[in-house]
Nucleic acid binder design. Structure first.
Length: 400
RNA sequence: GGGGAGAUACUCAAGCGGCCAACGAGGACAGACUGUAACUCUGUUGUUUUUUAACUUCGCAGGUUCGAAUCCUGCUCUCCCCA
């Protein structure tokens, strides 16, 4: 059981802490409190988050108490780094809304009925300045400067605002408030999580164990998976999308995805890796991974469908009827069923400027009924079942 | 508090009165080739009117000029040195 709990975990602090906590819980006949923080500004969950969430799920299955901490207070302060200084603090309503979205997505992996949700504004709002100073006095600047990104910015002479330094401390104080036994997070959270240990100790509590999961790389194969880098597979992505995205990742990512994104058993993983090193086409392995992922977040039938679709559509280059995003002709702005190609594509592909779309068309990215059309001003007749491909991933079909 | 340097598009970074929507690099996107991989090659990378054009952009606000990212004034912010 312990080895399952430790699978894929990159860092456990202290080393034997997990065992001790489990034993203690057993002795006291109580649930462990397992904390996971969530920043309410970014509620789009992807496979990177799933790495941590699946670990939480294991604990939940063993009967422990998951506490989701919504960092609404810290989000109100706003992040001053870099150019983001104009970032608006979220309103209470937005925070609520985001938390709800987050929960919905969470339910793909863990049982949200059994999860406890808390907002850190509940206690952080109430602290007096005296109390704040007292908390701050527990931490030294030298400690804070150990954090990698503070250190980097400091040595590079880029600004660090005071309240940024306070962030990790507040996060640590959250652990005090909720009496966390374990705090989970990605390896990037290591510093913040250890802050929790330290503060709990000064508040004479048994310090939490820190468990950090590795950060899954994004589809670009370079950076961590992150929405802003546009390299994610979202938990709520459609099956065909998941399949296509998985197939488009660089081969160098295969092992990592196998380990972190699939739910194969350890021995199955080994077997698949052996196939790879025996020279099997990595593409086949990627299909395996894709199917496994879709099975997790949708179901097996969908996974089969997605594969069949992919093979037919992209490998055999046959256009299939299914799985184009249907667009009602009535919903488009038009003139008597006629529209220019740019205008059509702008409406289909939202959040792109007209100029950008126009360039796309001119570079040959748009096909109508599988025929390239390079003229942005071609007049398109809006007919039922007209298929429009924009780039590699966006497919639409008009419906009367 | 005193002295010095600086703020340019996603990032880095040129430009220092007209030839600037702004060199170059990275990134990103698209195309060809492929296994929707990598490599390589090509193109694009402010917005808008069907575009040898107009409009908005070089920290913010004013000013000088026929004309400003470039000069002047004030402001904001950052970095460095000294106290």
């Amino acid at each position: 059981m312990i080895s399952n709990l430790k699978e894929n975990v990159e860092i456990i602090l202290p080393e034997n802490g997990l065992e001790e906590k489990l034993e203690q819980a057993k002795k006291d006949n109580r649930k462990l409190i397992i904390k996971l923080g969530f920043d309410p500004t970014a509620p789009d969950l992807h496979l990177g988050h799933a790495v941590v969430l699946k670990k939480l799920k294991q604990f939940q299955d063993l009967g422990h108490q998951i506490v989701i901490l919504v960092g609404d207070f810290t989000a109100q302060i706003g992040d001053p780094t870099g150019k983001n200084k104009s970032r608006k603090p979220l309103s209470a309503a937005e925070v609520k809304q985001n938390a709800q979205t987050y929960l919905n997505q969470l339910s793909k992996i863990i049982d949200t009925d059994k999860v406890k949700i808390v907002f850190n504004s509940e206690w952080l709002d109430k602290l007096s300045f005296t109390e704040v100073i007292q908390i701050l006095s527990k931490v030294t600047v030298a400690q804070l400067m150990h954090r990698k990104d503070f250190n980097k910015r400091f040595t590079e002479n880029s600004p660090i605002a005071m309240h940024e330094l306070v962030y990790p401390i507040l996060q640590g104080f959250d652990s005090v408030e909720i009496k966390a036994d374990i705090e989970m997070g990605g390896t990037d959270q290591l510093f913040n999580c250890t802050m929790g240990r330290q503060l709990q100790e000064t508040f004479e509590m048994n310090p939490q164990v820190v468990m950090c999961m590795p950060l899954l790389k994004g589809l670009d194969g370079k950076e961590k998976m992150s929405k802003s880098l546009n390299n994610i597979i979202g938990l709520t992505d459609a099956p065909n999308d998941m399949f296509g995205k998985t197939m488009s990742m660089p081969d160098s990512l295969i092992e990592e995805f196998l380990d972190l994104a699939t739910d194969f058993s350890v021995s199955e993983k080994e077997a698949v890796k052996a196939r790879l090193s025996n020279g099997e086409n990595p593409m086949e392995i990627k299909k395996l991974i894709a199917k496994n992922i879709i099975t997790q977040y949708h179901n097996e039938a969908e996974a089969q469908n997605a594969e069949a679709f992919f093979i037919n559509q992209f490998q055999n280059k046959k256009f299939e009827e299914k799985s184009f995003e249907s667009v009602l002709i009535n919903s488009l702005q038009q003139e008597n069923g006629i529209i220019s190609l740019v205008d059509l594509c702008v409406q289909l592909k939202k959040e792109q400027s007209k100029s950008a779309v126009r360039r796309l068309i001119e570079s040959g990215a748009v096909k109508i009924n599988n025929e390239k059309n390079l003229d942005p001003f071609a007049e398109i007749e809006l007919k039922n079942e007209t298929k429009i491909k924009i780039g590699k991933r966006d497919f639409f079909e008009l419906k009367a």
